[in-house]
């Protein structure tokens, strides 16, 4: 299970002071560019760019650690699976049962893996440098209903609590002799004693919480003020327009 829920790291520099929407626009432009052509070079160049950005944002070390833990394994598994399991080309280097390795497969897998790698690391950079509540505050200011922001922020709080609860239930049931590693039938049988207490235990709190937030004008449609202000400077607006212009320009030019 995950050891830390929010990836956010606290820093204060120019990258952090960018508006969340500007960072999302940047990611969106990168992804549109790499998915518009099947070429290995754009994802590689952009990945280097994202890594440089992470160092400029002073989170390079932690960023690379998350890349090693999340992006590299996913992209690596994808590369291996596609190299052996696609059915492109005829000259197989190696063949066994459903597995077949060809040059065409490898080059196809390379492009796919590079794309997924870029997608994962650019989102990692975003979630490392943006606090979820910062994103939600900014989106609420732009017209997102407050209830939606509540759902996202409160899920991020409930999730680690439930994970801790699940871990506690698993060890409690194991200590009672529940078999969680035996035959398939035994493991299926273990599902109910693990899921039951977890689900019913967490649903019990729902009603109390509903009463509590109802008493704080949760469903009110009046405009609310925010304690924290998320800056959206002229630089942000210019950057966003420039990014979209460059992407559209590159698309037309090609």
């Amino acid at each position: 299970m995950v050891d830390r829920l929010s990836f956010y790291l606290k820093r204060s520099n120019w990258f952090y002071s960018l508006n969340p929407i500007t960072k999302l626009t940047f990611i969106f432009c990168l992804l549109v560019t790499i998915y518009s052509s099947r070429n290995i070079y754009p994802p590689i160049y952009f990945s280097i760019l994202v890594i440089i950005l992470s160092f400029l944002a002073q989170i390079g070390k932690e960023f690379l650690k998350s890349v090693m833990k999340i992006a590299l394994p996913t992209a690596g598994i994808l590369f291996l699976m596609q190299s052996f399991m696609m059915q492109l080309g005829n000259s197989s280097i190696f063949e066994f049962f459903i597995f077949k390795l060809t040059i065409e497969n490898i080059s196809y897998a390379g492009i796919s893996a590079a794309r997924i790698f870029l997608m994962l690391i650019s989102f990692l950079l975003f979630i490392l440098s943006t606090h979820p509540s910062e994103l939600m505050t900014d989106l609420t200011r732009r017209g997102l209903p407050g209830q939606l922001a509540y759902v996202v922020v409160s899920t991020l709080q409930i999730l680690p609590q439930m994970q801790a609860k699940a871990a506690a239930i698993i060890s409690a049931q194991r200590s009672r002799g529940l078999d969680t590693e035996g035959s398939l039938a035994k493991r299926v049988g273990a599902l109910a004693p693990l899921v039951g207490p977890l689900v019913f235990g967490s649903l019990v709190e729902v009603e109390e919480r509903a009463i509590a937030i109802e008493a704080r004008a949760f469903m009110s449609t009046l405009k609310k003020t925010s304690l924290k202000e998320v800056a959206d400077t002229r630089l942000d607006k210019t950057l966003r327009i420039a990014l979209i212009a460059i992407t559209v320009g590159a698309f037309l030019w090609r």
């Binding site: 209830q147 509540y150 759902v151 409160s154 899920t155 409930i158 999730l159 609590q161 439930m162 994970q163 699940a166 899921v195 977890l198 689900v199 967490s202 649903l203 709190e205 729902v206 919480r209 509903a210 937030i213 949760f218």
Partner: peptide, 14 residues
């Protein structure tokens, strides 16, 4: 609105 966060957590944790 209160059930949704719990439901999302159920999805992930289960």
């Amino acid at each position: 609105w209160v059930l949704i966060p719990v439901a999302i957590a159920i999805n992930v944790v289960v």
